[in-house]
Design a protein around this nucleic acid. Sequence first.
DNA 1: GTCTATAAGATGATAGAC
DNA 2: GTCTATCATCTTATAGAC
Lengths: 210, 210
Amino acid sequence: MNATRAKLMAAAVAVLRDEGMAGLSARTVAARAGVNQALVFYHFTTLNGLVDEACRQTVDDSVEFYRTRFAAVDSLVELLHAGRELHERERAAGNVALMAQLLSGAQRDDVLGDAARYAMATWNREIEVVVRRVLATSPLVGIADPAGLARAVSASFLGLELYEGVDREGALAALDALEQLGVLVEVVDDLGPVASRALRARMRRTRRGR
Amino acid sequence: MNATRAKLMAAAVAVLRDEGMAGLSARTVAARAGVNQALVFYHFTTLNGLVDEACRQTVDDSVEFYRTRFAAVDSLVELLHAGRELHERERAAGNVALMAQLLSGAQRDDVLGDAARYAMATWNREIEVVVRRVLATSPLVGIADPAGLARAVSASFLGLELYEGVDREGALAALDALEQLGVLVEVVDDLGPVASRALRARMRRTRRGR
DNA sequence: GTCTATAAGATGATAGAC
DNA sequence: GTCTATCATCTTATAGAC
């Protein structure tokens, strides 16, 4: 694979992480890559074309990295631990900030829109498999919706990352509170069969009541 | 109050909602307001100054609108209903999209950063009061953190709104799944005193174990 | 493939007429 | 307060030399 292409894609990701969509231009990216600005258009036709490819590859790499880790998860406790580890690691790598900026820019541009849809779908597909497997042995099976939960989790992480950009302490407090709620689900998960049955009956009733 | 000032502020909010930060410029805002571009700088000194004032006022107005509504909430069931109503209404008004774009732009600009901090703090303050009051009569009192939960809720809504911009169906599925989990908390809330005590003891143990 | 040079246009912001 | 006209700077993108 071409070395300049790779340098430009890495630089595009770096600029989006550090400066956001507002700081992105063919010139800022090229300067970061240490190459000439015209090469952006030679290799990727348009600036958004570069962002598109760069984001897709970043997501593919991340998801690939976690595939084996996810495969080992088969209980809610393990899922909470894996989720925390994933979040810490992705955050440190700046990948969540990257996604947030991509989604933000995607509201206006169709190319970025496709890239954003691809990124979210790739993550959601992976998360949904794990959530589905974990829920299978939980009292919540048949009640909770794995596809919806997977989407809620990834979207919430995005929002938390945006928030962290302006208020780090507040975002950390939010994460702790969510982990707390995760523990609640964990406790429910550990209920005996009688309590489980009662809970499920109660939730079915509440659902119908809405 | 000056009419042109008001028109420019309304136009800035409209542009941010419909086109995002990427579509914002003194010219696009002025065109939308039906006034000359130079007036942005006459009235607000800089473009970000205009965005700053416009966002602050929008947040103040929204929070003010919900203050009486929130004051009537004193149970988890009511909180879930009020939250759903608030979300629908704010989403329809485009205020969540506005916040998401503000937060996105705030990663790079200090003026927008201040505005974003103000907006989040204003919402969080209001939500936290309600969460605290509701938790007071819940088995989760002393376990769940109202300040953290308030921040988690507002940040998650932001992420969901960004996600909805690229995948409407996915975002709606996520919202439904979250409402489902809300029902779970509601069920816990309705436990009798014996079950409550058992749950709290169990959660304390789990917390220490971490 | 990579560079320089440059076109064609958008941007924030200001000066000055009215 | 509002306008026109303008500056300096930045943008994406291309043409053509090497």
